[in-house]
Computed example of a mutant assay.
Amino acid sequence: MSCLKEKIAPNKFTYPFVLKACNRIGDLNLGKSVHGLRFRFGDEVNVQNTLVRTCCCGEEGGVEFPRKVLDEMCKLDSVSWSAMIGGYVQVRRSSDAISLFRELQIEGVCPDEIIMVSV
């Protein structure tokens, strides 16, 4: 039986795990579809961070969608920044990673160890 049929709604903890599963099976389109269902948790930074990480791990050069998600986030934390910087590095867009690092500094965010390793 489907959870939705039983009116058991997914929550802010469910979505990150589903997105991670989409990443593990390599289905970026499914991950984007799941993102479309997350309307109730649009401001949950954990859900959005997982989406950024998941989509950055997708197809080569596919960083436009996760960057759009990052740009639309109301609140960014160090995981948000490191996920996107790491995504740029992964697809060999080093200049974009450095630009985002500079943006992070302009925003007054103190980079953590993970961000520094990525840069």
Rank of each mutant, 00 (worst) to 15 (best):
C57V: 04
F39A: 13
G58D: 14
G108S: 02
G26V: 02
E113L: 12
V109Y: 13
V119H: 00
E103H: 13
P16F: 05
G87T: 04
G26F: 02
E107F: 06
R53C: 01
E113R: 08
V18S: 02
F65Y: 14
V89Y: 03
F41P: 01
R38L: 08
H35M: 09
L19I: 00
L51Y: 06
R92D: 15
G86V: 09
V47W: 04
G58P: 04
L70Y: 06
F17L: 11
T50D: 07
I106Q: 14
G62D: 11
D112E: 07
K32S: 10
F101H: 06
V45A: 14
L100K: 05
W81E: 00
N49W: 07
D27C: 05
D77R: 04
T54L: 06
R93A: 11
I25G: 01
V18Y: 01
R40T: 06
G61S: 08
V117G: 12
M84A: 04
F101S: 02
H35Y: 09
R38P: 00
R102V: 13
D77K: 08
L19C: 02
R38H: 01
N29M: 13
V79Y: 07
V63F: 13
L104Y: 06
V117L: 15
E60Y: 05
F39E: 11
E44H: 11
R102M: 13
G62Q: 04
V45D: 01
I85T: 08
G61E: 06
M116V: 12
V52R: 01
S33N: 07
C110F: 08
N23L: 05
E64R: 13
K68C: 11
V45E: 06
E113H: 11
V52G: 00
R92T: 13
R67L: 10
D96K: 05
C56V: 12
L30Q: 03
G61D: 05
V52C: 03
L70G: 01
R24G: 09
I106H: 12
C55M: 08
Q48D: 05
D27A: 04
E103A: 13
I25L: 05
D71G: 08
V69G: 01
K20G: 03
M73H: 05
D43N: 14
R102L: 12
A83F: 14
S118P: 00
C74G: 15
N49H: 10
I115Q: 03
L100N: 03
D96Y: 02
L37Q: 15
K20S: 04
L76E: 01
L51Q: 07
N23S: 15
T50C: 06
